Simulated assay, not measured.
Amino acid sequence: MIKWADEQIARGIRLSYGVNRVLSQASTPHQELTLIENDQFGRVLLLDGVTQVATADEFIYHEMLAHVPLFAHGEARDVLIIGGGDCGLAEEVLRHEGVRRVFQVELDAAVVDAARRHLGAINAPVFSDQRFHLKIDDGVRFVDGLDERFDVVLVDSTDPIGPGARLFSAEFYRAIQRCLRPRGVLAVQAGMPFLQRTGFATTVANLSSVFQRSGCYLLASPSYVGGHLSLGWGSDSLRIDSVALDVLEGRIARSGLNLRYYSAAIHRAAFVLPPYIAQLLPSRSVDQSTPQAPATASA
């Protein structure tokens, strides 16, 4: 019986979860899947020994990856999700009544199956929502052949190792750029700048090399050990970092959503970067040190 599940956070750093119960453990064609119960974090999904989602704090990551681009856009109708097999992100996106379609592409069917069986607390509404469409496929291959257009694309991927590595490349971001509408925006998981400095810097540099406007924003989630977790973004016209506070507040109020982490103030503050992170952004990238507040919001 497993008593502890270990995650190698970075060189010289290891996190151990006490295991109350093993809910699922399997070797899929793509990765090692482990789903456990823990006193503090609830149900925890690990892939290749790396934490993907914990039911106790998943709302932090999912709200920030979903609502920052969606409320910045203001009129998103069609959303594409690459990855996100636990379907917690899709659940958050589908809370926006104006979204008419969420198309999700996940590489590993076993992740979706395990999540559907054991993570209903974060994804149950998804599978009965007619706006949700799931395709099991390689995200890079899928986007390469895509001729549809989306308002928002969200990449909820593992770290840039193994099957997730190509989802951080400039080539992949260019393929996404081609399937975005004129005001479209991409948001991606970009790692922990303190412990994953090289991977973070490469991700934001790749975004900057493709999009006219790009950068990152931050969140703090207990199960992602190592300081701030960053989310990267790119758009050729939309400044998601400079939507006026009153515009965001109005959109949130009209949505009727009861959110636990995201707010208009958090949206604005998330783009203020500590100098040690800001200095890792390429010079071409949008200046993230102080978010701008134009009289007329660029949204």
Rank of each mutant, 00 (worst) to 15 (best):
Q189A: 08
G227P: 03
Q212E: 10
G184T: 04
I252V: 10
R181S: 14
V225W: 04
A270Q: 02
I176D: 07
G227N: 03
G199S: 14
L229D: 03
S255A: 11
G234M: 09
L259G: 01
S289V: 09
A205C: 02
N206Y: 03
G256Q: 02
Q288R: 03
S285F: 06
L231A: 05
A220G: 15
S214R: 14
V204H: 00
V204E: 02
L238C: 09
S289L: 12
A264E: 10
T198H: 10
Q189G: 02
V286Q: 13
S209Y: 00
T296G: 07
V188K: 02
A244E: 09
G184Y: 02
L231C: 03
P275L: 15
G234N: 05
L273Q: 13
R197T: 09
I240N: 08
I176S: 14
R284L: 08
G191K: 02
A278G: 06
G250I: 06
V204D: 05
D236V: 09
G232S: 12
P222Q: 07
R268G: 14
L229C: 13
C216M: 03
R284I: 08
A264D: 14
S214F: 11
L238G: 12
C179M: 01
S208V: 02
Y217K: 00
R260P: 15
Q288P: 01
D287H: 13
